[in-house]
């Protein structure tokens, strides 16, 4: 058999290798090295973390490829980067510079108000955000090889990540108890491809790896999401907007591994310094929320 590249098995496979780990947002090569030394399984290379994107306002776009390349040079772990929803040319550019994963992300300003990228056309794998099972399976139908909850990025408030994880995992439990003849109209109701709904029902989980993202700021937040049943953790603003990023990063990594051991969680939560200030989601006007971006 000839060597085959860019199969769905290898795209999904890299996400499987990240399971039980923490992916950290970084804005400089120095941050990237701090993240790697703290035990991150991958970094997300960005010009601004979500908290700063919120504060800055304006149009948020793909980062400068020069910055992403410098971060790729700085670390041996996989490097991810974000493109705007529907902006397939930003994705082509990210593939051309060789990033390991693309996040088609609602954190950036959407480029298309009706369509996401056809991710099957790319050799590089994609991760996409979701708020519920239908959204997750639509993204997988478009070729996403990894899913994450959207949460509400840049807030340090975990409540939306919890809501989205509970929605996805709860809907999967409901799907499994349904009579088979009910599945088609359920697929119609949630707007998801029937075959993927059936596959999810049979597996009892999403067909790809499912991480939590959006508002995770403490080791306890990470362990909460893991106990709810996600496969791993993205931390955006929560690390480099805190008082002692290296220490907090290492603690969140340990908490993600030992998520079921309250004694270790207590130990790693001690003396971490100031967490990111955070912003309660219920105090944010609806038009400023970003999780509703995506279709």
């Amino acid at each position: 058999m000839e060597k085959e590249v860019a199969t769905f098995t290898v795209k999904k496979g890299l996400a499987q290798m990240l399971k039980g780990g923490v992916i950290m947002d970084v804005v400089t090569p120095e941050h990237a090295r701090i993240a790697e030394d703290a035990g991150a399984v991958a970094v997300m290379a960005l010009e601004r973390v979500p908290a700063d994107i919120r504060a800055h306002g304006g149009v948020a776009r793909m980062s400068d490829p020069e910055l992403i390349l410098k971060i790729m040079d700085a670390v041996s772990i996989p490097v991810m980067a974000k493109c705007r929803i529907g902006h397939f040319v930003e994705a082509q550019i990210l593939e051309a510079i060789g990033v390991d994963y693309i996040d088609e992300s609602e954190v950036l300003t959407p480029a298309d108000e009706a369509h996401h990228i056809n991710k099957h056309l790319f050799k590089v794998p994609f991760v996409c955000g979701c708020r519920n099972l239908g959204e997750a399976l639509r993204r997988i139908g478009e070729g996403a090889a990894m899913i994450r909850t959207k949460g509400e990025a840049g807030t340090g408030d975990v409540v939306e990540a919890v809501r989205h994880a509970r929605a996805v995992l709860g809907e999967i439990r409901r799907l499994q108890t349904m009579a088979e003849e009910e599945v088609m109209s359920y697929a119609k109701e949630i707007g998801a491809p029937y075959e993927l709904v059936m596959e999810t029902r049979q597996l009892g989980r999403l067909p790809v790896v499912n991480f939590a993202a959006g508002g995770i700021a403490t080791p306890a937040d990470a362990a909460l999401m893991m106990q709810l049943g996600v496969d791993g953790i993205f931390v955006g603003s929560g690390i480099f907007k805190s008082g002692d990023p290296a220490r907090r990063a290492a603690a969140i990594v340990k908490a993600t591994t030992h998520y079921n051991d309250p004694y270790i969680l207590a130990e790693v939560s001690r003396n971490l310094g100031e967490p990111m200030v955070g912003r309660q989601i219920s105090s944010i006007p609806e038009e400023e929320l970003i999780a509703s971006r995506g279709w």
Binding site: K3, E4, V10, P78, G98, V99, D100, V124
Partner: peptide, 15 residues
């Protein structure tokens, strides 16, 4: 030798 084949786009399957 780590990452000996390059980055993710070079990941592959073979018999």
């Amino acid at each position: 030798e780590r990452n000996a084949f390059g980055r993710q786009v070079e990941s592959f399957e073979v018999d």
